[in-house]
Simulated scan of single mutants.
Amino acid sequence: MQVASDALGLTVSDRDIHAAACAFAECAVAPHGAAIARDDEMAPEVIGELQRAGLFGMNLSDAQGGLALGPIAIGLYHEALGQASSAVRSILTVHGMVCEALNRWGSAEQRARWCVSLAHGDAIAAFALTEDGAGSDVTAIGAAAVDGGSYYRLTGRKLWVTGGQLAKVFLVLAKCEGEDVALLVERDTPGLDVEPVSAMLGLRGAMLGNLNFRDCAVPRSQRIGATGLTVGGVIATALDFGRYTVAWGAVGIGRACLEQSMDYAETRSQGGKLLRDHQLVSALLADMIVGVRAASLLCLHAGRLRETKDPQALWETAAAKYFAASMAAAVASSAVQIFGARGCSSDHPAQRHYRDAKILEIIEGSTQIQQQLVTRLRYASL
Rank of each mutant, 00 (worst) to 15 (best):
residue 96 G to S: 06
residue 296 S to W: 04
residue 285 L to F: 09
residue 21 A to W: 04
residue 365 G to H: 06
residue 263 D to V: 13
residue 240 D to F: 02
residue 325 A to S: 15
residue 291 G to M: 07
residue 177 E to K: 10
residue 293 R to H: 14
residue 278 H to T: 02
residue 111 R to E: 11
residue 361 E to C: 15
residue 133 G to R: 12
residue 93 T to R: 12
residue 288 M to G: 03
residue 126 A to C: 08
residue 182 A to E: 01
residue 108 A to P: 03
residue 257 C to T: 01
residue 345 S to W: 09
residue 370 Q to A: 12
residue 128 A to V: 06
residue 304 R to Q: 12
residue 257 C to H: 02
residue 145 A to M: 12
residue 311 P to K: 07
residue 129 L to N: 00
residue 215 D to R: 13
residue 282 S to T: 10
residue 5 S to G: 13
residue 2 Q to H: 14
residue 21 A to D: 03
residue 343 G to Y: 05
residue 310 D to T: 09
residue 113 R to K: 15
residue 225 G to I: 02
residue 343 G to D: 02
residue 63 A to Y: 07
residue 367 T to H: 11
residue 286 A to Q: 15
residue 374 V to I: 04
residue 160 W to I: 04
residue 242 G to M: 02
residue 336 V to S: 05
residue 378 R to E: 14
residue 167 A to S: 02
residue 123 A to C: 13
residue 69 L to S: 07
residue 141 I to S: 00
residue 312 Q to W: 06
residue 139 T to R: 15
residue 44 P to D: 02
residue 349 P to G: 07
residue 244 Y to S: 15
residue 318 A to E: 11
residue 301 H to M: 08
residue 370 Q to K: 09
residue 329 A to Y: 10
residue 195 E to P: 00
residue 81 L to W: 03
residue 21 A to L: 07
residue 151 Y to E: 14
residue 260 Q to G: 13
residue 60 L to I: 02
residue 107 S to W: 08
residue 100 E to K: 06
residue 102 L to D: 00
residue 241 F to L: 11
residue 260 Q to S: 13
residue 89 R to A: 15
